[in-house]
Structure formats: C-alpha cells, structure tokens
Amino acid sequence: MGNRTEHQAQENKQAQQAGAEEIAQMRDEMLRFAILQLRDATLAEDVVHEAIIAALAPGKYSGSGSLKSWVFAILRNKIIDVIRQRSRHPTELFVEDGADPDNQFKQNGHWKKTQKPSDWGAPEKILASEQFWLVFKICLNELPENTARVFMMREHLGLELKEICQELDISDSNAWVIMHRARMQLRKCLEIHYMQGKLL
C-alpha cells in the first residue's frame, strides 16, 4: 500500500546520499503522469516511489544526461510493466472526449481559410525555443483527460496502438480517431499560442 509520508522519508534519505534535491521537484510531475496513465492514485504513488528508489540506488545514475530524463525513463518502464501485467478488468467504459476537428474544415473537407496551417519554419529552431516548450506543455495539459491518456500512452510511453486498445478495451478505429483528434487539437493550440503568440 502506498504510504506517502513513509515513502518520502525513505526517498529523502536516499536523495541526501545521492545529493539529488531535484527529485523532490520532479515528484509532483511524476505523480500526475502516473495517475493519468494508471487511474489509481495508490498504485501511482507506489510506482513513483519505486522509480525514485531505483533511480537513486547507488551506482545507477551515471551522471551523464539529465537526471530528469533518467528518472522519467525508469518511471515510464515501471508504468508499462504495470499496464502489461495487470489483468484487465475495466471498471469504467472508456469515453472518447476529444473535440472533432470538423470545425477546422469546410463542408467539402478542405481547410477553412482561417484554420490552414502556417509555415512554422525549421523544426530545430522550434525545438530550441524556450517559449515553444512552455506552450507545448500547456497545450498537452489542455487535452481532455481520456484523449491525453491515449495520446501519452502512445507517444510518451511508446506503446503500440494494439496494446493500448487492449488495455482500454477500445477498437483500432476508435484509437485512430482519438489519436487524430489529439494531434489536431495539439497542432491548433500550438498554432494559436506559439505561432500567433496569443496569450494562454
């Protein structure tokens, strides 16, 4: 059972030894991600705890590369293990909550003038922009919960769509629709708030 205080005490002890205060700051972000994926706060507490303990185990972190990437890579693997292992018993029906991108298109299925994607320029430039990352994270958070869950399982955990369909008990075509909606919403959010610079 997850016991937050106990967990944190143990983590703090290890963190002191490893000299990794950064972990504490990451914990909330890790927990939010784990809860989104696992839909179980107690289980999420446990995997985050395990990931932190594993990350801080003596001699594990080589010190090259960012600590955050290292810890999140471990967390992702732990979440994937749980998803793959748990005998599925969906307690709730998966409800599609993404917005239909229909309003970006005219009746004939072509882009509305106001919705047509603009030229964003070189990808390397965008990925090097602090502002882009700020907006990108906010846009990810704006995705509806169930859409975000599928999207992050696919893109962030790197699961195959087949595995996601099994875990959530949805069909292939359902999953394609959800992924399309997620990408279209994310693109539009970036277009408006990053490219056009409209305030969030």
Binding site: P101, D102, Q104, F105, N108, G109, H110, W176, H180, M184
Partner: peptide, 10 residues
C-alpha cells in the same frame, strides 16, 4: 479532402 489527408498522416 484535406480532412481525410490529416487522418491518414496521423
């Protein structure tokens, strides 16, 4: 239609 094209690229 463009909408279909975006579905396929996704």
């Amino acid at each position: 239609p463009c909408k279909r094209a975006t579905e396929l690229m996704s």
